[in-house]
């Protein structure tokens, strides 16, 4: 049989701008860039920490510049987008969740996941700010010597 001649249309480089579903996808993926950069900021801080107090204070002074605070504000917004979208995708990696014979809607998973994230966040904030309830504070002190959190 003769080979059928076909025309293959090239994929335009801006394909992801042509459909709202693709734009939302790319925004979700963009959160990864901010986590990557944030991890590098922390690694840089760790390096400063290992070099002594002067280097570490230099790193902290840099964090206090308006540009770095602005970066972290944008990063926090993308991290929030990541939290929500992560729990939207997570149930797709497991067999269909059923509770009492009924399919658990994705929205319920998102509410539980974001709720868990909020609870952990509240705990970490309270720990760092030194406002944990006495019982919890005692338990944390047994795990981590006094001095603060990362």
């Amino acid at each position: 049989m003769a080979e059928v001649r076909t025309y293959r249309r090239p994929m335009p480089a801006d394909w992801w701008t042509r459909n709202p579903s693709y734009v939302v996808y790319m925004l979700r993926e963009a959160s990864a860039v901010f986590f990557f950069l944030y991890a590098l900021v922390l690694l840089w801080g760790l390096n400063a920490l290992s070099q002594g107090e002067a280097a570490f204070d230099g790193w902290r002074a840099l964090l206090a510049t308006p540009a770095m605070i602005a970066f972290h504000a944008v990063a926090a917004a993308f991290a929030l987008l990541h939290t929500v979208t992560w729990f939207m995708v997570l149930p797709k990696t497991a067999p269909t969740l059923r509770l009492g014979g009924r399919i658990v809607p994705v929205a319920a998973v998102v509410v539980v996941g974001v709720g868990a994230s909020a609870a952990i966040s509240a705990f970490i904030y309270a720990w760092v700010a030194g406002i944990l309830p006495p019982g919890l504070a005692e338990a944390v002190r047994n795990l981590v010597p006094p001095g603060g959190a990362s």
Binding site: S21, Y22, T93, P95
Partner: peptide
């Protein structure tokens, strides 16, 4: 698959390919 998820939006028969693919990543 990079979980774009648009496949599941356009399916005219209510199939969720994104779910099938990602369950099988696990």
């Amino acid at each position: 698959c990079t979980v774009v998820g648009y496949c599941s939006e356009v399916c005219p028969k209510g199939v969720d390919p994104m779910h099938a693919v990602n369950e099988n990543k696990v």
